[in-house]
Design a binder for these strands. Structure first.
Lengths: 357, 357
DNA sequence: ATCCTGCATGTAATCGTTTACATCCACGGG
DNA sequence: CCCGTGGATGTAAACGATTACATGCAGGAT
């Protein structure tokens, strides 16, 4: 195949190619013929290699334009052994928290020309592993796991396959795994301190499910604040929530239906539960904050709509940081393996302090 | 390379391969050697071809197990000219509607062994096209577009590239493009009829942005119901919303701050706006439904939390149907190109009728 | 014994790029 | 006039699978 056969100016060639509406895919070979260079050079142009003379570069670019060439991802990935894609495992159930994180992940990924492949974890244990397995086999360059329930065993195993892994909202268990967390303790401490500062005497805690890091750390924050203020919890006022809206709704309904007296204030360890509590109270014609002050945690979108005082988790930033960590791990850039992001209290009307927005 | 050289039983071979912890990737060739067959046969086993004797099948499977082989996606995609992946373009801003649709898409896709690649459209026009361009070049087998603002031109263009496209919540403009819609008209009609049936005299409509299909169809539904009931709209009570929470919030605030009298009822053409209205009223110490009945549209998750009467859009099912259509288009299965899904009214307390949940 | 049939399997081309290495050429110094 | 140097470009071998086609073989019909 003598390339010189094609050594004619672009405008000379017969126009049978039309504007690329043909069925056959346009490849680098077509471009190389059209522009009279080798496929290697075409590839160099595509990949912005500096080792191409300006003249050939424009010739190739013209040919690309004319033929409507688009590079084939699979072939490229195969040759380069990278996919420019990061996989994200998304929890099946989501209260808006992870959706927001996902946006952050995406935003940064896009800025580095990476793409996102998402898989949903349906909740049950076996499913978790199966879902993440999808992402093996060279489909993605790195994995971001947003799922609290993912088994440690799996994480380690995956890490051994030389697949960089970033964990969100979950501690590291292994080297080779990066993690991005939020400062649950300080956040909970601040919220608790705020409630105590308002002079509330009987403060209830709507806790999270046992065994999850967030639930534990947030509770620790509460205890720490209480101790510092010399406040002692009433055991009866520590409710066993599970982080779902329903749990707040039902626990509060039971409490009220049983005719028990409301606490002065309640700190629900995440927003959905706080919203469940609000709803139950509303249905009993009780008012937040008049009958009970209420504080949540995370600042999901709906919290603002409901005027819920809460602790803001920097979801968007978590995503960005995780994305950055993942890509840096792939490209060999430096990365801090464990990052803890600050939280801050957002005061709205649900805690009884008047404030804008 | 004589395969007979490797014609020994698996258990005979030297165990220098360990359990696959080596750095080099395990390929079909490795498996073929290990099991004493050709790569073709290995491939046949992997792809569940029936043309393999049971004996060899187990031998190959053992080898795969032993070496920890995982097939390489890029190579497979390159050879088969399919990726088993469908791309989803997700709107940058989302009130929970599209997240839910996405879950539906995923659920069905998983059941057919397809994967999901997502891209976010950041809102501005140019971005839309750029984002969807990602998904070209053989990265995905089909595209599901959830974005209202995607330009028609782009859609047609993409359709010409033989890439099956499914539009969600947006009408077809071209053959070769499937679409999944909801029955906005009937839904709005039902909501309006409900409000009229409750005897409300002054009913406000919080409309959607001009030019979007949903907004138009929903409004038509209102008009239809009104005409049938012999009810005439007050022009002043048709508010120009834009489907965002802020729009409901601000319009209601302005109205109240101006000291104008509340309507008897309001139908916000989507939930976020209804929630904005609720919030504004709440901040003015007004009650829904006592001071004004309120109905929304879509039944996003938060609607339930707020006791908002609304029209349910079958988001999950839309996703499922879209996913099914996309995959069927790829695999050549039959597909109905335009599907309209039914909506139904969900009565909660915001319209003044008492009812459970 | 011969031939045909059909199943199980192997051979090798192919998918579209990338990239290490080889080549070619022009230019400047000696 | 020769040679070394370096920049621009070409050659061809990967990358890891799939698959059309060829082959070999066993068994039944004749």
């Amino acid at each position: 195949m003598d390339v010189n056969d094609y050594m004619q100016d672009v405008s000379d060639t017969i126009l049978r190619d039309g504007n690329g509406e043909q069925g056959r895919t346009v490849t680098v070979l077509d471009v190389s013929r059209q522009s009279g260079v080798s496929t290697a050079t075409v590839s160099r142009v595509i990949n912005q290699s500096p080792k191409v003379s300006p003249a050939t570069r424009v010739r190739v670019l013209k040919a690309i334009e004319k033929l409507g060439y688009m590079r084939n991802h699979s072939a490229r990935a195969l040759a380069r052994q990278r996919t420019d894609t990061i996989g994200v495992v998304f929890p099946g159930i989501d209260s808006g928290f992870f959706s927001e994180v996902l946006k952050g992940i995406n935003e940064y990924a896009v800025s580095r020309d990476y793409h996102l492949m998402v898989a949903f974890s349906q909740g049950d244990q076996g499913e978790h592993d199966r879902v993440a397995e999808y992402l093996q086999a060279g489909r993605v360059d790195a994995l971001i796991l947003m799922n609290l329930g993912m088994s440690d065993q799996f994480v380690r195993q995956a890490a051994q396959r030389e697949l960089p892994i970033v964990l969100i909202d979950r501690p590291v268990k292994d080297a080779r795994v990066a993690s991005v967390m939020i400062d649950n303790r300080s956040g909970a401490d601040a919220a608790m301190t705020h409630l105590l500062g308002l002079g509330h005497q009987r403060i209830a805690i709507l806790a999270g499910p046992d065994g999850t890091i967030d639930a534990e750390q947030r509770f620790e924050g509460c205890q720490h604040a209480a101790k510092r203020a010399g406040y002692a919890f009433d055991k009866d006022l520590i409710w066993p929530g599970n982080f779902f809206w329903e749990s707040g709704y039902e626990l509060m309904n039971h409490w009220l239906d049983a005719g028990k007296p409301l606490p002065d204030a309640m700190f629900a360890l995440n927003d959905p539960m706080a919203m469940g509590v609000m709803e139950a109270m509303h249905e009993h014609s009780l008012s937040v904050p008049d009958d009970m002050a209420l504080v949540g945690f995370d600042d999901v979108q709906a919290a603002r709509y409901l005027g819920l005082t809460t602790v803001r988790s920097p979801m968007h930033e978590m995503g960005r940081i995780a994305s950055e960590a993942a890509i840096n791990l792939v490209t060999g850039g430096r990365t801090q393996l464990e990052q803890v992001l600050a939280t801050d209290l957002v005061v709205r009307r649900s805690c009884g302090v008047e404030s804008k927005s």
